[in-house]
């Protein structure tokens, strides 16, 4: 038996909105410690990794490790039927090919139940090692979203460069070019407005803006985002989910032919 109740059901809605343009099907890998999802886009250049600890759910019950394969289209349709302040309970019995969703309003007056057929999804799992990044930049998530949106008006690619002077985003195309510099903030009122730059080594990488714009669909999940960069390695974009989980996106850099 698997059962997990998320008090803030809107978090699930936001998670699905954040990935539905990148992947079509997902496997929920459920264990006693929590739920994880790993999925790649069809081009195999970006990967989504969601990790949700069991402590984010009340109750959480997972008697035996179970993998639940779901089509995001169906999931998206069902979850859209929940109100933002509803709790969402996910239930699956062993040996059945359905997953159940129960939505409950805060006062308990309205409950809704939905069922989705499970799918057999062939997914490749990649082992992502703990990486020592050259630079780790934490910034407001809306700021990162804005930069990606603005830069995609100029070109298809964005160059991200971290030096001791800060982080620079640049793009160029037929129309012209643009550069945006961010420096580490000194004094800010709110921690979530802070720009924090950890620099071990200067780093300079190019990425496809199309994917970064997909990743920023996760902005409603968190006020902050972390960019982890390493030379000649995939970028890792992390959105924390409350204090119990995270959504990470990995993207291969563009390289010289």
């Amino acid at each position: 038996m698997f059962e997990a109740r998320l008090i803030q059901g809107s978090v699930l809605k936001k998670m699905i909105d954040a990935i539905k343009d990148i992947v079509t099907d997902i496997n929920l890998d459920c264990s006693s410690t929590g739920i994880s999802v790993q999925a790649m886009d069809s081009g195999h250049v970006c990967l989504v990794l969601i990790e949700l600890g069991s402590d984010g759910f009340e109750p959480y019950r997972c008697d035996r490790n179970i993998t639940l394969g779901l089509g995001l289209k169906a999931l998206s349709v069902v979850v859209r039927c929940a109100n933002n302040d509803d709790s969402i309970t996910i239930k699956a019995q062993e040996g059945t090919d359905n997953i159940n969703f129960v939505f409950e309003s805060p006062n308990g007056e309205k409950t809704s139940q939905f069922e989705i057929k499970l799918m057999d999804i062939d997914s490749e799992h990649l082992g992502i090692p703990d990486t020592e990044y050259d630079s780790v930049v934490k910034m407001p998530s809306h700021e990162f979203q804005r930069i990606c949106r603005d830069m995609s008006q100029l070109g298809d690619s964005i160059v991200v460069a971290c030096t001791k002077d800060g982080i620079q985003f640049s793009a160029s195309g037929d129309m012209g070019s643009g550069k945006i510099n961010l420096r580490q903030s000194s004094l800010v009122d709110k921690e979530e407005d802070q720009i924090n730059i950890e620099l071990n080594d200067p780093v300079h990488l190019t990425f496809a803006l199309r994917y970064l714009n997909y990743f920023t669909k996760a902005t409603p999940l968190s006020p902050t985002v972390t960019l982890s960069l390493k030379a000649e390695s995939p970028l890792c974009v992390t959105y924390p989910i409350g204090d119990f989980g995270s959504m990470k996106f990995f993207l291969a850099p563009k390289i010289d032919d």
């Binding site: 990649l126 082992g127 992502i128 995939p234 563009k254 390289i255 010289d256």
Partner: peptide, 14 residues
């Protein structure tokens, strides 16, 4: 500058 290698070339398939 348009090549992106698939992630499989960066990370192992365990």
């Amino acid at each position: 500058k348009n090549l992106q290698k698939p992630l499989l070339l960066y990370y192992d398939d365990p």
